[in-house]
Design a protein around this nucleic acid. Sequence first.
DNA 1: CACAATTTAATTGTGCACAACTTACCTATC
DNA 2: GATAGGTAAGTTGTGCACAATTAAATTGTG
Lengths: 144, 144
Amino acid sequence: MTEAPRLDRQVCFALYSASRAATAVYRPMLEDLGLTYPQYLVMLVLWESEPKGVKELGDELGLDSGTLSPLLKRLEALGFVERRRSGEDERRVAIHLTPAGRTLSSKASGIPQHLADAAGLSAEELEQLRTTLGRLTEALHRSN
Amino acid sequence: MTEAPRLDRQVCFALYSASRAATAVYRPMLEDLGLTYPQYLVMLVLWESEPKGVKELGDELGLDSGTLSPLLKRLEALGFVERRRSGEDERRVAIHLTPAGRTLSSKASGIPQHLADAAGLSAEELEQLRTTLGRLTEALHRSN
DNA sequence: CACAATTTAATTGTGCACAACTTACCTATC
DNA sequence: GATAGGTAAGTTGTGCACAATTAAATTGTG
């Protein structure tokens, strides 16, 4: 007798639900900035250090050019980044922030705290969750 | 002075990454069954109890008809479910499993254990993670 | 130098998510 | 039994994810 796995017992469903619930909390705040959630992640990376190549961005976010190329074009159309074909290596496209893109950083600075407040978990629990998720992601990547 | 939030400090990015890493581990196994990950979630719900209306499925999974209607049509084209317009209430479409859809359940029974093995976490850690994620999802939904 | 192998982005095609809207149907109340 | 309000499912349009392929540039090796 084989048992059907129960939905409510699956860690994967818990991850999937929590991830979508978190982006749903971000959505109205990001809408004020004119960004989607994946666009916000790209901007987070660029706010730390820029310019960056498409490949570098992809490595940090775990996304490929099939996702990033059109996303970056939209960010460019919004006026937040500029895509410049590199002179030394013509294969590379360097993604630079525009002044508007840099300005956006300060407008976004309150967002993480808002999520932390909405999470209903203590600071320690959040910290532990982040650590556990990091270990999980690492292990899952290794298993492939 | 406003600081840019750091990507590697964000719980939301940890969730997003872990969720995508988990579905990536499922993908090759589900491919053998002919299912995508969201299709698998729908089948999990139906294996527990069927028939179910589109709305019921949506409530349990947190998905709307814009996602489910085409997904269910694909599951029907694959021969795993049948969509029957209800006689009593012509607005409702009842989703029934076909014999092939029921058979699939046993073929899928080993999948959760495989993820647990790949996760690199102890059973207690996994259980605690699931509980914490459940509380988090609840709180995030309430905050909207 | 030649040229095979690799690397970087972009493109194409499929399948979610989700917002906004439409259509059909049901139920209340009069 | 007309009709107002609500509900169920479907449709349309945008933006990810991700696999597979392509095109162009670079690097490594004989």
